[in-house]
């Protein structure tokens, strides 16, 4: 099954990020191509996953979202839970859950058919991608270095994603642009 996922992945570090057009949970159209000139973050999310819960209940992801959207970063969170997964939520349910979790991104997309997830080769939640102002994929990996579900570990982890995003915003090259993300498998 995994070979099927990897066979159609179009997202490669250093290459133009695959573009997509999708509706967010509020019905607004999101076009990646229209974001050129801005740094874009794609965050794969499943609010039922304990690794995602760690970073929302600990306030890490909402804080990152608030901080970087404040720096004109476009933050797109994508949930690829398929419809027959017990954690599936419809658009309204997903929007409501995101609000409860303190989500502060720009757009939230319900990718129940897994199209965007497979396009980017998203394997786990949380998994983060960064696309630079030129539309090039410059980061694909973990939020941080500690593969645990404990909130207390956030403070002592190496913030891999944050470091990468800071580098992109500073016009610097990202070190460790592809690393293994930890989390729950995306529920395709």
């Amino acid at each position: 099954m995994n070979s099927i996922i990897t066979a159609i992945v179009l997202a490669i570090i250093g290459q133009p990020a695959p573009v997509f057009v999708a509706k967010d949970v509020k019905g607004a159209e999101v076009s990646l191509a229209d974001q050129k000139g801005k740094v874009v973050v794609l965050e794969w999310v499943n609010f039922g996953c304990p690794f995602v819960k760690k970073h929302y209940s600990g306030g890490n992801l909402p804080k990152l979202q608030e901080t970087y959207t404040g720096k004109d970063v476009v933050w797109i969170s994508i949930c690829s839970n398929k419809k027959d997964n017990p954690r599936y939520l419809d658009d309204a349910g997903l929007a409501e859950r995101a609000e409860k979790e303190g989500w502060k991104g720009t757009h939230l997309i319900n990718d129940a058919n897994g199209k965007l997830g497979r396009m980017y080769g998203a394997k786990v939640t949380p998994q983060l991608f960064i696309i630079d102002e030129k539309g090039v994929l410059v980061y694909d990996g973990a939020i941080d270095s500690k593969a645990t579900t404990k909130v207390a570990d956030i403070a002592t982890a190496d913030p891999l994603f944050k470091n990468a995003l800071d580098a992109v915003l500073a016009g610097e090259e990202v070190t460790g642009a592809k690393n293994k993300p930890y989390g729950c498998g995306v529920k395709y």
Binding site: C49, P50, R87, C184
Partner: peptide
């Protein structure tokens, strides 16, 4: 430990 099935994971 972490326990998972196809529907989700629980620590």
């Amino acid at each position: 430990w972490l326990a998972c099935d196809d529907g989700g994971c629980v620590p």
